[in-house]
Simulated assay, not measured.
Amino acid sequence: MSITVTTWSLEQTSPADLRPAAQAPAGVRIVRAEVPSPEFSRFLYTAVGGDVRWTDRLPWSYARWSEYLARPGVETWVAYENGTPAGYIELEAQEGAAVEIAYFGLIPAFRGRRIGGQLLSYGVARAWDLSERWPGTGPVERVWVHTCSKDGEHAMDNYLRRGFRLFGTKTEEEPKVAVPGPWPGAHTAA
Protein backbone atom coordinates (compact mmCIF):
# COMPACT_ATOMS: atom_id res chain seq x y z
CA MET A 1 0.00 0.00 0.00
CA SER A 2 1.27 3.49 -0.83
CA ILE A 3 0.36 7.13 -0.32
CA THR A 4 0.76 10.09 -2.65
CA VAL A 5 3.12 12.68 -1.21
CA THR A 6 3.69 16.17 -2.60
CA THR A 7 6.96 17.86 -1.62
CA TRP A 8 7.43 21.62 -1.96
CA SER A 9 10.87 23.26 -1.95
CA LEU A 10 11.05 26.86 -0.74
CA GLU A 11 13.84 29.40 -0.39
CA GLN A 12 14.95 32.82 0.69
CA THR A 13 17.82 34.48 -1.16
CA SER A 14 18.39 37.47 1.11
CA PRO A 15 18.11 38.16 4.84
CA ALA A 16 15.66 40.91 3.84
CA ASP A 17 13.23 38.18 2.70
CA LEU A 18 12.53 37.17 6.29
CA ARG A 19 9.21 38.44 7.63
CA PRO A 20 9.35 37.73 11.37
CA ALA A 21 6.33 36.48 13.28
CA ALA A 22 4.75 38.38 16.13
CA GLN A 23 6.27 37.91 19.54
CA ALA A 24 5.91 34.45 21.07
CA PRO A 25 3.80 33.98 24.19
CA ALA A 26 5.36 34.77 27.57
CA GLY A 27 7.49 31.96 28.91
CA VAL A 28 8.86 30.91 25.50
CA ARG A 29 12.59 31.11 24.86
CA ILE A 30 14.76 29.70 22.10
CA VAL A 31 18.19 28.30 22.92
CA ARG A 32 20.90 26.64 20.86
CA ALA A 33 21.80 23.12 21.94
CA GLU A 34 25.54 23.75 21.78
CA VAL A 35 26.66 20.33 22.98
CA PRO A 36 25.94 17.70 20.32
CA SER A 37 23.73 15.07 21.96
CA PRO A 38 22.44 12.13 19.92
CA GLU A 39 19.99 11.28 22.70
CA PHE A 40 18.46 14.75 22.80
CA SER A 41 18.39 15.15 19.02
CA ARG A 42 16.70 11.77 18.57
CA PHE A 43 14.18 12.70 21.28
CA LEU A 44 13.32 15.92 19.41
CA TYR A 45 13.13 14.11 16.07
CA THR A 46 10.71 11.44 17.34
CA ALA A 47 8.66 13.75 19.56
CA VAL A 48 8.11 16.31 16.79
CA GLY A 49 7.94 14.00 13.80
CA GLY A 50 6.30 10.90 15.17
CA ASP A 51 2.75 11.81 14.20
CA VAL A 52 3.70 13.16 10.75
CA ARG A 53 5.68 10.12 9.64
CA TRP A 54 9.28 11.27 9.99
CA THR A 55 11.00 7.91 9.59
CA ASP A 56 14.25 8.45 7.66
CA ARG A 57 16.42 8.86 10.77
CA LEU A 58 14.82 6.16 12.92
CA PRO A 59 17.40 3.55 11.89
CA TRP A 60 20.36 5.86 12.57
CA SER A 61 22.88 4.47 15.05
CA TYR A 62 24.29 6.45 17.94
CA ALA A 63 27.53 6.83 15.97
CA ARG A 64 25.74 8.20 12.92
CA TRP A 65 23.86 10.75 15.04
CA SER A 66 27.14 11.77 16.71
CA GLU A 67 28.94 12.16 13.40
CA TYR A 68 26.15 14.22 11.87
CA LEU A 69 25.73 16.55 14.88
CA ALA A 70 29.49 17.18 15.11
CA ARG A 71 29.72 18.47 11.52
CA PRO A 72 30.65 22.16 11.22
CA GLY A 73 27.54 24.20 10.50
CA VAL A 74 24.97 21.80 11.95
CA GLU A 75 22.96 23.52 14.68
CA THR A 76 19.90 22.65 16.73
CA TRP A 77 17.83 25.49 18.18
CA VAL A 78 15.19 24.47 20.72
CA ALA A 79 12.06 26.35 21.76
CA TYR A 80 11.20 25.92 25.43
CA GLU A 81 7.95 26.90 27.08
CA ASN A 82 8.49 27.43 30.78
CA GLY A 83 11.44 25.04 30.74
CA THR A 84 9.85 22.25 28.67
CA PRO A 85 11.05 21.52 25.13
CA ALA A 86 8.27 22.57 22.72
CA GLY A 87 9.96 22.11 19.34
CA TYR A 88 13.12 22.64 17.36
CA ILE A 89 14.74 23.80 14.16
CA GLU A 90 17.82 22.06 12.79
CA LEU A 91 20.13 23.97 10.45
CA GLU A 92 22.70 22.40 8.14
CA ALA A 93 25.33 24.45 6.28
CA GLN A 94 25.81 23.19 2.74
CA GLU A 95 28.13 23.83 -0.17
CA GLY A 96 27.25 26.75 -2.39
CA ALA A 97 26.71 29.27 0.44
CA ALA A 98 23.40 27.63 1.42
CA VAL A 99 21.83 26.62 4.71
CA GLU A 100 19.09 24.01 4.75
CA ILE A 101 16.43 23.91 7.41
CA ALA A 102 16.82 20.16 7.76
CA TYR A 103 14.02 19.77 10.32
CA PHE A 104 11.55 22.11 11.94
CA GLY A 105 8.46 21.52 14.02
CA LEU A 106 6.70 21.46 17.34
CA ILE A 107 5.82 18.65 19.69
CA PRO A 108 2.07 18.04 19.16
CA ALA A 109 1.02 19.36 22.59
CA PHE A 110 2.62 22.74 21.74
CA ARG A 111 1.08 23.27 18.30
CA GLY A 112 -1.46 26.06 17.84
CA ARG A 113 0.05 28.21 20.61
CA ARG A 114 1.89 30.80 18.44
CA ILE A 115 5.28 29.19 19.09
CA GLY A 116 5.94 27.88 15.56
CA GLY A 117 6.07 31.26 13.83
CA GLN A 118 8.47 32.62 16.41
CA LEU A 119 10.70 29.52 16.29
CA LEU A 120 10.83 29.59 12.50
CA SER A 121 11.57 33.34 12.45
CA TYR A 122 14.37 32.96 14.97
CA GLY A 123 15.79 29.88 13.25
CA VAL A 124 15.82 31.52 9.82
CA ALA A 125 17.63 34.55 11.27
CA ARG A 126 20.20 32.13 12.76
CA ALA A 127 20.55 30.46 9.35
CA TRP A 128 21.38 33.81 7.79
CA ASP A 129 24.07 34.55 10.40
CA LEU A 130 25.37 30.96 10.70
CA SER A 131 28.77 31.81 9.17
CA GLU A 132 29.44 34.16 12.11
CA ARG A 133 29.43 31.11 14.42
CA TRP A 134 31.20 28.76 11.99
CA PRO A 135 34.31 30.39 10.49
CA GLY A 136 35.19 28.79 7.19
CA THR A 137 31.61 28.16 6.10
CA GLY A 138 31.48 31.45 4.17
CA PRO A 139 28.67 33.97 3.93
CA VAL A 140 25.16 32.58 3.49
CA GLU A 141 23.42 33.47 0.22
CA ARG A 142 20.43 31.13 0.41
CA VAL A 143 18.27 29.52 3.09
CA TRP A 144 16.02 26.73 1.89
CA VAL A 145 13.63 24.10 3.16
CA HIS A 146 11.32 21.44 1.89
CA THR A 147 7.95 20.54 3.35
CA CYS A 148 5.50 17.94 2.24
CA SER A 149 1.87 16.94 2.39
CA LYS A 150 2.66 14.69 5.39
CA ASP A 151 3.79 17.66 7.51
CA GLY A 152 1.52 19.63 9.81
CA GLU A 153 -1.43 21.44 8.28
CA HIS A 154 0.05 24.90 8.99
CA ALA A 155 3.63 24.19 7.86
CA MET A 156 3.41 25.58 4.32
CA ASP A 157 1.52 28.68 5.43
CA ASN A 158 4.12 29.38 8.13
CA TYR A 159 6.96 29.20 5.57
CA LEU A 160 5.15 31.49 3.14
CA ARG A 161 4.31 34.02 5.88
CA ARG A 162 7.99 34.10 6.89
CA GLY A 163 8.94 35.14 3.34
CA PHE A 164 9.89 31.86 1.68
CA ARG A 165 9.18 31.46 -2.05
CA LEU A 166 8.32 28.22 -3.80
CA PHE A 167 10.93 27.00 -6.29
CA GLY A 168 10.00 23.38 -6.84
CA THR A 169 7.21 20.82 -6.47
CA LYS A 170 7.24 17.07 -6.93
CA THR A 171 4.68 14.38 -6.30
CA GLU A 172 5.50 10.72 -5.82
CA GLU A 173 4.17 7.55 -4.30
CA GLU A 174 5.70 6.40 -1.03
CA PRO A 175 5.12 3.19 0.87
CA LYS A 176 2.61 3.70 3.65
CA VAL A 177 4.35 3.12 6.95
CA ALA A 178 2.95 2.87 10.43
CA VAL A 179 3.09 6.19 12.24
CA PRO A 180 5.91 5.60 14.72
CA GLY A 181 5.14 8.25 17.35
CA PRO A 182 7.82 9.00 19.91
CA TRP A 183 7.08 5.59 21.46
CA PRO A 184 4.70 2.71 20.63
CA GLY A 185 1.08 3.70 21.11
CA ALA A 186 1.78 7.44 21.46
CA HIS A 187 0.13 8.47 18.20
CA THR A 188 -3.46 9.67 18.61
CA ALA A 189 -4.47 10.64 15.04
CA ALA A 190 -5.55 8.25 12.27
Rank of each mutant, 00 (worst) to 15 (best):
D151N: 09
Q23E: 10
Y68E: 15
S41W: 07
A97Q: 15
S131E: 02
L44N: 01
G181R: 01
G185I: 04
L106S: 06
S61M: 03
Y159E: 15
N82I: 04
L69T: 04
A47I: 04
V143L: 07
A47W: 03
V48Q: 03
A98H: 02
I30K: 00
G116M: 12
G49Q: 05
S2P: 14
A26Q: 10
L44R: 00
W60N: 02
R114P: 01
V28M: 00
P25I: 14
Y88H: 08
S121G: 11
S131V: 00
P135Q: 08
H187I: 06
D56W: 15
A21S: 15
S14D: 07
L130E: 05
G163K: 02
V74P: 00
L130A: 03
T55G: 14
W8T: 04
G105N: 11
P180F: 06
T55L: 11
R126E: 06
W183A: 09
L10K: 05
L18H: 02
A21M: 04
G185Q: 05
E153A: 11
E90D: 09
E95H: 05
A97T: 02
R32L: 10
V52Y: 08
L58K: 14
A127G: 10
P59F: 11
A26F: 08
R57D: 08
L58R: 09
D151H: 13
G116S: 13
P108T: 02
F43M: 10
T147Y: 04
T55F: 12
G73R: 03
A98G: 05
L160K: 14
S2G: 10
Y68L: 05
F110Y: 08
T137R: 15
G138C: 10
A98D: 04
A190I: 14
P108R: 00
Y122G: 04
R162Q: 09
R162P: 00
P139V: 08
E173M: 11
W54R: 09
Q12P: 02
I89Q: 00
I107Y: 00
W183K: 15
G116H: 06
G181Q: 02
V140S: 01
A190P: 13
G116L: 10
V179R: 08
V74S: 08
A155I: 06
